[in-house]
Design a protein around this nucleic acid. Structure first.
Length: 351
RNA sequence: UGACAUAGACUGCCGCU
């Protein structure tokens, strides 16, 4: 049974949930009793296929047939609801679990819901649950704090986020790389570079080693506040260390150059990243096209557009709307319409 | 011993002030 459950897990990770259910069928046929691990794995498979409705249906069936469930079962469903953008339903489900006495909501369940609420801009509701869990004697951990801090930063409540960070430190919870980076990114996004740098230094002092994401957040912050030189320094610094820049790091630099009207340099960076073994993605291409469009250099934009397709990239709605907007600004409506038709023909959503 | 759930970075327009 354990082996077959592992098999189901593999199938689900490959997106082959239907085959997973076939395996469940053969488990039953062989007279094995599937356990909670088996059901949890299948529920998770359905959730990651974005068919949360089916996951809930399946769950109801499991309940009706009296098969075993664990707190992970509920957690998986709640996470599924949150990831499908319906944290409110997740809260309702939490209440249902509570009222039926199915299980006592644990730390992970609260963490998932708080994160889901914050990601939907409902950080006030997240805060309420944060208080509620403390009241129930469940102590928030570093994950809880990082979800709350991320949410508060996203709604520009940096002071409140920083206060939570201090609260966590005072409780003796050791901040890890994720929460340091979330807080640093929050400061950067709010243009508070001094605070971001200060926290970065605290992080080093605490012996937490910054990774690619930490550097990338700082580089973006520096770029957005016009501190191009410092951004470059940091980029060199990370390249020399153990940390290699990722495609996101390069994308941020490409975007920053383009915003500065330096599409040509951005294009050179495009080649440099390939040389360094970092494969550009569609975001890189879109950013570069926008760079040319901003300068009104539609020929260069179109030339790159053609070359990216021959490199095997498939343009998306953003690629086309960038180009269309570029032509519109120059009042070249014929070319703009041409592209609208082209994207419609390709079956790309015209929004 | 070994199978299941949670947190961090990047692209266009529009809307909002």
């Amino acid at each position: 049974l354990c082996t077959l459950t592992i098999l189901i897990n593999c199938l689900c990770h490959l997106g082959l949930v239907d085959f997973g259910f076939s395996v469940l069928g053969s488990i039953l046929k062989r007279g094995f009793e599937p356990n909670a691990f088996t059901f949890n794995t299948l529920i998770r498979g359905l959730c990651s296929k974005n068919v949360i409705g089916h996951a809930l249906e399946f769950f109801r069936k499991v309940v009706a047939l009296g098969y075993p469930r664990t707190e992970v079962t509920y957690g998986t469903l709640i996470n599924g609801l949150c990831k499908s953008g319906d944290a409110v339903k997740a809260v309702l489900f939490l209440r249902e679990i509570d009222q039926n006495g199915w299980c006592i909501p644990n730390l992970v369940v609260y963490n998932m819901i708080i994160d889901g609420l914050c990601k939907q801009g409902l950080e006030k509701e997240g805060m309420n649950l944060f208080t509620e869990m403390k009241g129930k004697g469940i102590s928030p951990d570093v994950v809880t704090y990082s979800s709350m801090i991320h949410g508060l930063c996203n709604s520009c409540q940096w002071k409140e986020a920083a206060a939570l960070f201090d609260e966590m430190m005072n409780l003796g919870i050791r901040p890890n790389i994720v929460i340091f980076t979330a807080m640093i990114d929050g400061f950067c996004k709010g243009g508070r570079l001094e605070e971001a740098r200060a926290l970065f230094n605290i992080m080093l002092r605490e012996g937490v080693v910054p990774d690619c994401i930490t550097y990338t957040c700082l580089i973006q912050g520096l770029c957005n506040s016009g501190q191009w030189k410092e951004a470059n320094q940091l980029f060199q610094q990370m390249s020399q260390g153990e940390v290699s820049p990722s495609v996101v790091t390069f994308n941020i630099l490409v975007t920053a150059l383009c915003t500065e009207g330096k599409a040509k340099e951005a294009h050179e960076l495009f080649y440099l990243m390939i040389q360094k073994g970092v494969e550009p993605n569609l975001i890189t291409c879109n950013a570069l096209i926008d760079g040319y469009c901003l300068l009104g250099q539609m020929d260069q934009a179109m030339e790159f557009f053609t070359s990216m397709m021959s490199r095997g990239y498939t343009p998306d709605t953003i690629t086309y709307s960038t180009l269309i907007y570029g032509y519109c600004k120059l009042k070249r409506m014929n070319e703009a319409w041409q592209l609208v038709k082209e994207m419609a023909n390709k079956g790309i959503i015209v929004d």
